[in-house]
Design a protein around this nucleic acid. Sequence first.
DNA 1: TCTTGACTTGGAGTTCACTCCAGATGATAA
DNA 2: TTATCATCTGGAGTGAACTCCAAGTCAAGA
Lengths: 125, 125
Amino acid sequence: MTITEVSKKYDISQDTLRYYERIGLIPAVNRRKNGIRDYTEESCGWIELAKCMRSAGIPIEALIEYCALTQQGDSTIGARKELLVEERRKLLEKMEDMQKTMDKLNYKIDRYEKAEVTGVLSWDK
Amino acid sequence: MTITEVSKKYDISQDTLRYYERIGLIPAVNRRKNGIRDYTEESCGWIELAKCMRSAGIPIEALIEYCALTQQGDSTIGARKELLVEERRKLLEKMEDMQKTMDKLNYKIDRYEKAEVTGVLSWDK
DNA sequence: TCTTGACTTGGAGTTCACTCCAGATGATAA
DNA sequence: TTATCATCTGGAGTGAACTCCAAGTCAAGA
């Protein structure tokens, strides 16, 4: 696949695709003789992973390390697992924060809805 | 309360507290004669709200607008509600993204755990 | 009285994650 | 053949959200 196709398929700009490769967030992509990128199915798998992880806010640094470990072969399986477990822990924490914020938003919206009916908005400790 | 106390209570740096006030993310804080901040219970409520919303990634711009609307009185109740509803919608979307990432992390960690037992890690389409 | 320490301001600096750009090259269509 | 278009590289620029700093004020303790 060309970079244009991959960019459309995953809705990631070409600049970002090149950037991810440059910083090692995904392994080097195959090239044709003339130097033009030719994404394999495996490359696409990495792109998809990157998009998924980044959309949840997993930091770029962690993903670079994960990618580097992967390229060092099976001896790093334990380290890779640890890395993912740690990111999962942080993600869970963030999800809990978000749930708290969601609860607060629901509470406030509910109060505003009642205020729209009664015309009264009491102070909110 | 002094800024030092508020900073400790909510675990937010003094610089950030001043910054939030400067950009209008919270209403102006009361001052003593000499210009030193004296946070009331209401100020603390705003700080708590700011911390909660920011921890979930609600953008600063939206919070500034919410704060501004609040200071314009009851005529903005509808607009404030709409703003919160919109931020809730975006937050829900983010939480769904995170859940997908969480699923993927669980799947991958599970595969690594099996690989640690069997010594085999098949490639992951 | 002198020094220490908390507080003030406005503005500059930092970090993260892109995003854009200039200049070059190579392929395609008229 | 000429013009247009996709792609390449390295490096500069951007926006969001802080974070730090210099220079000044003020109150309290030795």
